[in-house]
Simulated scan of single mutants.
Amino acid sequence: MKRYKIGYRTIKTAVGATIAIAIASYFNLEFASSAAILTILCIQTTKKKSVHAVYTRLIASLTGMAFAYILFETFGYNPFVLGIMILIFIPTIVSINVSAGFISSVVIIMHLYSEANFTIELLLNEISLMAIGFGTALAVNMYMGDYQKELERYIDELEAIYRSIFREIAKYLRNGDTSWDGRELIEAEELLNRAKSLAFKDVENHLTRKQNEFYLYFDMREKQFEIIERVLPKITTLPVMVQQAELVGDFMEDLAENVHSGNTAKTFREKLEIVKKEFANMPLPETHEKFLAMASLYQFIEQMDEYLMIKQTFKGMNKAKG
């Protein structure tokens, strides 16, 4: 049996529905249970989504009330008029980009239809239900879990994977070790997807913020990962091992020991320039195979320079280590 887990959204839905119906009942509103329905329809995974949900449902409901008043009071409260109203109403809310509020608006419309008498008291009742339902949803959804510790854990895990990849590259360049199965590449891709998704959710939980350092960090690492995937074939298919391979291997070992969320990319780009100069001062290749190996290695270090350049544009994390 699959393990059942109660999440924040489930708890907030239950709490919000309870509060909404309790308030509506306290004020003796008609259709008090509908306040709970309106609340449930507005509980979302992030604060920004919740605010947008309330906006679309409020506009759609008010529009629906206007349509109901005009059509029902003009042509009568009967199924035929209701059908005509819905045919006109749906394209209208789609055109003003609030179609997500259709279900909420139908709840209000059906109240008016069932009463078959549009009065000031009924209007105030429906507005009160919306205020309680939507307001409660906003209130309970202002609390969101803190993702910082989980995001920091993702950073640590991803950096450990990058270190492992660079060490495997160094081992191969130094002694031709081909035992690596490349599983870290799959792990890195999966971790990046989860981390960026969570970081984006964290952005959505700050109403005045469009991005944060976690999202920028994982976006930067994703661009670096694309380079890692691109350059691996250049060195794993070397026809022969040349003297320059050990030089590049030493650099990769040094880089592996310094993968962290701070920004030392400038230092390593300077070290890479030294590697390029030493590379250029080494003897020219004697065979075609050595020439191909040296060309692949040079392309590799050029790509690693691009890898470091991406990191250099990132200002670093506040939690930076070393």
Rank of each mutant, 00 (worst) to 15 (best):
L87F: 13
F89G: 00
F89S: 05
I90S: 10
P91N: 02
P91H: 00
P91W: 03
T92R: 01
I93S: 06
I93G: 01
I96Q: 08
I96H: 11
I96T: 12
V98E: 09
V98D: 09
F102I: 00
I103S: 08
S105N: 03
I108L: 08
H111C: 07
H111E: 11
H111Y: 01
H111A: 06
S114V: 01
E115P: 04
N117I: 02
F118A: 06
T119D: 09
I120Q: 13
N125W: 05
N125S: 04
E126F: 02
I127R: 05
M130D: 03
M130N: 04
M130T: 00
A131G: 08
A131M: 14
I132M: 03
I132D: 03
G133S: 09
F134K: 01
T136C: 06
T136S: 09
T136W: 02
A137E: 06
A137N: 00
A137V: 00
L138C: 05
A139Y: 11
V140N: 02
V140I: 08
N141L: 01
M142G: 09
M142L: 07
M142Q: 12
Y143C: 01
M144C: 10
M144S: 14
G145V: 11
G145W: 05
D146Y: 09
D146F: 11
E150H: 12
L151F: 07
L151C: 09
E152G: 02
E152A: 03
E152N: 13
R153C: 00
Y154F: 15
I155G: 00
L158I: 11
L158C: 07
E159T: 08
A160R: 08
I161V: 12
Y162K: 07
S164K: 10
S164D: 15
F166Y: 15
E168N: 15
I169A: 10
I169S: 07
I169Y: 13
I169C: 08
A170L: 02
K171V: 01
K171N: 15
K171I: 02
Y172C: 04
Y172I: 01
Y172L: 08
L173N: 05
L173M: 04
L173I: 08
R174M: 07
R174S: 10
N175F: 05
G176C: 11
G176F: 08
G176T: 12
D177C: 04
D177K: 08
S179K: 15
S179N: 12
S179W: 02
W180V: 03
D181A: 13
D181L: 14
G182D: 10
L185W: 10
L185V: 07
L185T: 05
E187T: 11
A188H: 14
L191D: 01
L191R: 07
L191Y: 09
L192G: 11
L192E: 10
N193A: 14
K196L: 12
K196M: 13
K196F: 02
K196V: 01
K196D: 06
L198G: 09
L198V: 14
A199E: 04
F200S: 12
K201Q: 13
D202A: 06
V203C: 14
V203E: 10
N205W: 00
N205R: 11
H206C: 06
H206E: 12
R209E: 12
R209Q: 13
Q211E: 12
Q211I: 09
Q211H: 10
E213Q: 14
F214D: 10
F214Y: 15
F214R: 15
